Amino acid sequence: MNELISIINQVSGGEPEEIIYDLQSVIQNSTASMIAGIVIGLLICFFGLKLIRVLAALAGALAGAVIGLAAGIMFGLEGTVMLIAAGALAVILACLSAILYRVGAFVWLLMLGVGAALITFTPDSLLTAFICLGAGLILGIITAIFLDPIIIIISAVAGGFIAGISAAELTGLAGSFLITVLASLVLAVIGLVIQFMMKSREVGKKERLYSESFREKESMETEVERARMLLDDEDGEKKSSPDDEDPVRESEDDEDDDDITFIE
């Protein structure tokens, strides 16, 4: 708790290097954060594509807050004003990321890439910070182009390693690099299989629904054509019926013709 309070004070005071260092300390040394890392990692690993809009909204909120804090530091804002600006940008980017699918995918993978780079390499210089940002940008752009397949692959791998590393930290096996990597890879492979299976079922369901709707439409068009043909037949019969001569009238006309012939 004291570390979190220290982070909030540093945010209002604009001390980015100390913020990153304290965040790393909280993540690596807190039991609660390790448990949360396992749960969040498994959710991302197994349901990354299903939860993409939720993850994108969270990533958008985080991106907005970071941009707001960075802008506040650049323009010399402090305290409440900077926090309000960061909060407003966080809300705006969260909404945009949740509504616009491609934008949300880009923001989610951007923040994931930058976060992974920052946790792995503490930016001790501006160049290192830009390298971390560049890695996130490349990942976000690739994801925005290819969307679902890349989201599945990255979320499965990232979630597997988040859960695996957090579990290793919690159980005291973090010193065994091989065990940590193997456990993370196993989770990543399982996540890949599960997510691609769910995506395949979703695509199959959409194709089945489209096929059913197409057959219904075709059947309806066939019934309409049959009804039109029946109406045409009925109209043809009605038009032909007045032309038929009455046999009684025809016989009377014949008698009249005979009378006239006789008189002549």
Rank of each mutant, 00 (worst) to 15 (best):
T171V: 06
E255K: 13
G115M: 01
G134N: 09
A135Y: 11
V181E: 06
V107W: 00
D22L: 10
L127M: 12
L109G: 00
G37A: 08
F161Y: 12
F46Q: 04
K50A: 11
S30A: 08
Y101I: 01
L93R: 00
Y210N: 09
A56N: 01
R102P: 03
A85E: 14
L83N: 07
R208F: 14
K238M: 13
E234W: 04
S33F: 13
G13R: 08
D253F: 10
I131P: 04
G175A: 15
L110W: 03
S125T: 13
I131K: 03
I165G: 03
V103T: 10
D246V: 14
F121C: 11
I179N: 00
A94W: 01
V193F: 12
F196G: 01
I141E: 02
I27T: 05
F75T: 05
L137F: 13
D253A: 14
S240W: 08
A57K: 04
D257W: 15
R215M: 09
I5S: 11
V39K: 06
T128A: 08
A86K: 01
I179L: 09
L77C: 05
E250P: 07
S125A: 05
S97N: 01
T128V: 09
A116C: 07
I151K: 02
I194H: 07
G64D: 03
D254P: 05
R226P: 01
K199E: 08
N2K: 13
R249H: 11
E169V: 02
I44D: 01
I138P: 00
I8W: 12
V91Q: 02
A59S: 11
I52S: 04
E17T: 13
G172N: 12
L49D: 03
D244A: 10
G140D: 02
I44P: 04
A70T: 09
D243A: 10
E207D: 07
I84R: 00
I263F: 14
A71H: 02
C132H: 13
D258N: 10
G14V: 06
F106H: 01
L170P: 15
L133K: 03
G79K: 06
M229P: 02
V193G: 07
E250M: 15
G236I: 03
V114W: 02
Q195E: 09
M229A: 11
R249P: 15
I260H: 12
M1G: 10
Y21H: 12
M220F: 15
V203H: 15
T180E: 04
I150Y: 10
L126G: 07
M220Y: 14
L43D: 06
I99G: 01
V39W: 09
G236A: 13
E264G: 13
A135E: 13
I52W: 00
D233T: 14
G172Q: 05
E225S: 14
V189C: 05
L173Y: 11
N9T: 06
